[in-house]
Nucleic acid binder design. Structure first.
Lengths: 253, 253
DNA sequence: CGTTAAATTGAAGATCGTCAACCAAGGTGG
DNA sequence: CCACCTTGGTTGACGATCTTCAATTTAACG
């Protein structure tokens, strides 16, 4: 299927809005720095769900800043076994790694319909050279990605299936909340149980049973792409969820 | 137990030797850059096996460059369940992440007796400001750490126990070989089966059985802290091991 | 409506964990 | 030098968790 041509960023919507929300939960970002980020965005594009955005092994010349929807990084075993290594929410740089790695060793794909911005590597180089504080903030983002990966390793390696699914939900709740995409009672999560299985290292059949247990225990209901949290402390306790590894400062400024 | 006082780096042994071996498998490093690295090293220390080097939550003021021995980063669940998220070989910066993250969300511990160098964060800042190419190489190292973590997520999430243990051995063989610590026939790996279990998300009992299978299949023998490779292509095939994710260029220069 | 992907449930089986016992090696103190 | 202790390795028996297979239901969509 053909990739829709990216269109110029139209006025009226700020492509770096979610990114700023996230960055400001880590450090102050000046108005000038925000403008530098805005200027770095070259084009905005859209893609339907389940589309490959960057193939494994490719060497893209620009980075992808996710604006709307969910994007995953995946690796495959043999061909049919898929593992989601990272899941990205709006405001995340999906492939900033690719800037220095040159070549990506994993696939990047849309999980839902997505809207995204392209930031050319040349623009990143300019930021590196003239905006050291901003550059550090962007790199910090990749280090936090790695911290999230470590928590995922712990989850898949040592948590029970039930706690694993619960932890997945806890993490997404907090991360979506940072960019204003969660309510007190829950959040929209338009993905399939197969996707959850690929992220947690389980089968979709078992994910289904674990979700039923979470529902039966009155902790969380996931249905029709919506997660409703019934008992947030209980869910956190079951999952052994501690948001420390997300490196969020208490309040925006 | 008291931590031995770090001693000044004595002449005659080059604390950045292994690091240079690794960096030069990724990009050229000039003699001047090598000297800048040497100058950044403040002190060399030693520690016995199974010692905590940086406690989770701590904010160290210097980074640790591993010179000899093996170091792990670990996270714990409840208290008794341990998961190794990363294993480091000589030449690795163990906690470069801590430079920007400020606080580490995981524990760093020695797996064997280790010798290491301390590089103060202030020295890293100087490198960032005056040696952009070298700085990029160091950051590239943290990005490759993340790539290794992703492969670990795939391993624990989707590989069978046997393939998982085999893959662990393949990775260490290649990584130790980069810094000259492997022979054609095998390598020294003075760790316990419990350690392997904590790295692969298994129990030590099951690791024992998987190691026996690898031996029975004439692929690899692990005994007394030594790994002997009997059939490298066969081991790679069983593990579905592809060293692409280590981002090594074919030959040093 | 008919078609397809996803969700759901049951039954059966495999993998891996738990429990328990025993062995081997190395260090310690008498 | 040798009992003793501790840690790790090894093996067997058993059981739990999770997967596989299969069938059915539900929902979305042209």
């Amino acid at each position: 299927m053909a990739t829709p041509a990216p269109r110029r960023v139209e006025e009226g919507d700020d492509p770096v809005g979610p990114l700023l929300l996230k960055l400001r939960r880590r450090d102050a970002v000046s108005a000038r720095e925000a403008q530098v980020l805005r200027d770095a965005v070259e084009a905005v594009g859209e893609l339907p769900a389940d589309h490959v955005m960057v193939e494994a092994g490719a060497a893209p010349g620009a980075c992808t800043l996710l604006l709307e929807g969910l994007v995953v990084r995946t690796k495959a075993l043999n061909g049919d076994l898929r593992q989601i290594t990272d899941i990205h929410v709006p405001g995340d740089f999906v492939d900033l790694h690719g800037y220095l790695l040159k070549r990506l060793e994993h696939r990047i794909a849309s999980l839902t319909p997505v809207r995204f911005a392209r930031v050319p590597h040349a623009a990143l180089t300019r930021i590196t050279e003239s905006e050291p504080h901003l550059a550090r903030l962007l790199w910090l983002g990749t280090l936090i990605d790695a911290a999230v990966q470590r928590e995922r390793i712990l989850s898949i390696g040592r948590r029970t299936a039930l706690a694993r699914v619960a932890h997945f939900m806890c993490e997404l709740f907090v991360r979506l909340d940072v960019v204003g995409l969660a309510e007190q009672e829950g959040f929209s999560l338009p993905i399939t149980q197969i996707d959850i299985a690929d992220a947690t290292g389980l089968t979709s059949v078992h994910v289904n049973r674990m979700l039923r247990q979470l529902r039966d225990r009155s902790l969380l209901t996931f249905r029709g792409g919506n997660a409703v949290i019934h008992d947030w402390p209980g869910l956190q306790a079951l999952a052994d969820f501690d948001p420390d590894y997300l490196f969020l400062t208490p309040e925006p400024r």
